[in-house]
Simulated scan of single mutants.
Amino acid sequence: MKLYFSPGACSLSPHIALHEAGLAFEPVLASTKSHKLQDGTDYYGINPLGYVPMLELDDGTRLREGPAILQYIADLVPLKNLAPAAGTMPRYRLQEWLNFIGTEMHKGFSPLFNPATPDEYKAVVKARLASRYTWLESELAGKEYLMGEHFNVADGYLFTITNWAKPLGIDLSPYPAVMAWHARVGARPAVQEALKAEAALK
């Protein structure tokens, strides 16, 4: 398998999942700025949408969109408990989390990356993100991870997005449960491995 990624982007999430799963894969650096691979290949020729992550299977099948990739990885190694079994209510709860993270958190941060976003709108965006972190604080109270005692792929996704908070001026100090959860996920060996690998390939 190949994982097309860009350091610091949302592709860190499946990178973490692959390390958690213990699966062999080749990380392929795909710049989100130049849209080229390290050998000069035009990434648009591989993924016409131009963004990461993208997972390429050994048979050449390509899978886009982080939440779909995360569930695919988790289902390859069911004994790792990275996702509940398909068709169960806990699996739908996982999908609920993945959709919330993707639409409310991931896309919530997006305007802050755009230098053309007016400061007035950035203030609105930050206020909305604060309201989402307030809700997350209540959801994480008394829990080790998003769905209880066990880490799953949604934790890796939210960890990736929450890494953007500090550099983009989002203060997480009002959310001690969120901060404790973020530190807990960040300390996992697979997460550390993925972070170090991305830093080395940057």
Rank of each mutant, 00 (worst) to 15 (best):
residue 80 K to F: 02
residue 73 I to F: 02
residue 117 T to C: 12
residue 61 T to M: 08
residue 99 N to H: 15
residue 71 Q to I: 12
residue 199 A to N: 01
residue 9 A to M: 04
residue 11 S to M: 10
residue 125 V to A: 09
residue 175 Y to P: 00
residue 47 N to A: 09
residue 113 F to I: 02
residue 31 S to T: 11
residue 162 T to S: 07
residue 167 P to L: 06
residue 55 L to T: 03
residue 77 V to A: 06
residue 196 K to V: 09
residue 42 D to R: 02
residue 74 A to L: 05
residue 192 Q to A: 15
residue 55 L to R: 01
residue 21 A to Q: 05
residue 41 T to V: 08
residue 155 D to T: 07
residue 50 G to W: 04
residue 44 Y to Q: 04
residue 18 L to E: 04
residue 27 P to W: 10
residue 74 A to T: 12
residue 86 A to T: 13
residue 147 M to H: 04
residue 174 P to I: 14
residue 94 L to T: 07
residue 22 G to H: 09
residue 83 A to R: 01
residue 197 A to P: 04
residue 32 T to C: 14
residue 90 P to L: 14
residue 188 R to G: 09
residue 201 L to Q: 14
residue 156 G to V: 10
residue 154 A to N: 00
residue 192 Q to C: 14
residue 89 M to N: 09
residue 29 L to R: 03
residue 115 P to Y: 08
residue 70 L to C: 04
residue 37 L to V: 11
residue 24 A to V: 11
residue 8 G to Y: 11
residue 33 K to T: 15
residue 110 S to W: 07
residue 55 L to C: 02
residue 40 G to C: 12
residue 101 I to N: 00
residue 191 V to E: 02
residue 66 G to S: 12
residue 163 N to R: 13
residue 5 F to C: 04
residue 118 P to R: 12
residue 186 G to S: 02
residue 4 Y to F: 13
residue 193 E to N: 07
residue 120 E to I: 14
residue 74 A to Y: 08
residue 76 L to Q: 15
residue 99 N to E: 03
residue 158 L to Q: 06
residue 122 K to D: 00
residue 140 L to Q: 04
residue 141 A to G: 08
residue 31 S to Q: 11
residue 80 K to E: 14
residue 116 A to H: 05
residue 122 K to H: 06
residue 102 G to E: 01
residue 130 A to T: 09
residue 138 S to G: 07
residue 32 T to N: 10
residue 6 S to N: 13
residue 53 P to C: 11
residue 198 E to I: 01
residue 89 M to R: 14
residue 72 Y to I: 08
residue 92 Y to H: 09
residue 183 A to R: 06
residue 74 A to M: 11
residue 79 L to A: 15
residue 141 A to W: 05
residue 62 R to L: 05
residue 28 V to G: 13
residue 185 V to M: 08
residue 45 G to E: 11
residue 144 E to D: 14
residue 169 G to F: 04
residue 87 G to A: 01
residue 72 Y to N: 04
residue 87 G to H: 06
residue 96 E to T: 13
residue 89 M to T: 12
residue 130 A to K: 05
residue 94 L to W: 05
residue 188 R to V: 07
residue 155 D to S: 03
residue 187 A to K: 05
residue 78 P to C: 09
residue 30 A to Y: 11
residue 8 G to L: 09
residue 132 R to C: 01
residue 184 R to T: 10
residue 197 A to E: 15
residue 61 T to D: 03
residue 118 P to M: 10
residue 201 L to K: 02
residue 164 W to D: 13
residue 110 S to E: 13
residue 82 L to C: 11
residue 67 P to I: 15
residue 179 M to E: 10
residue 188 R to Q: 11
residue 176 P to S: 04
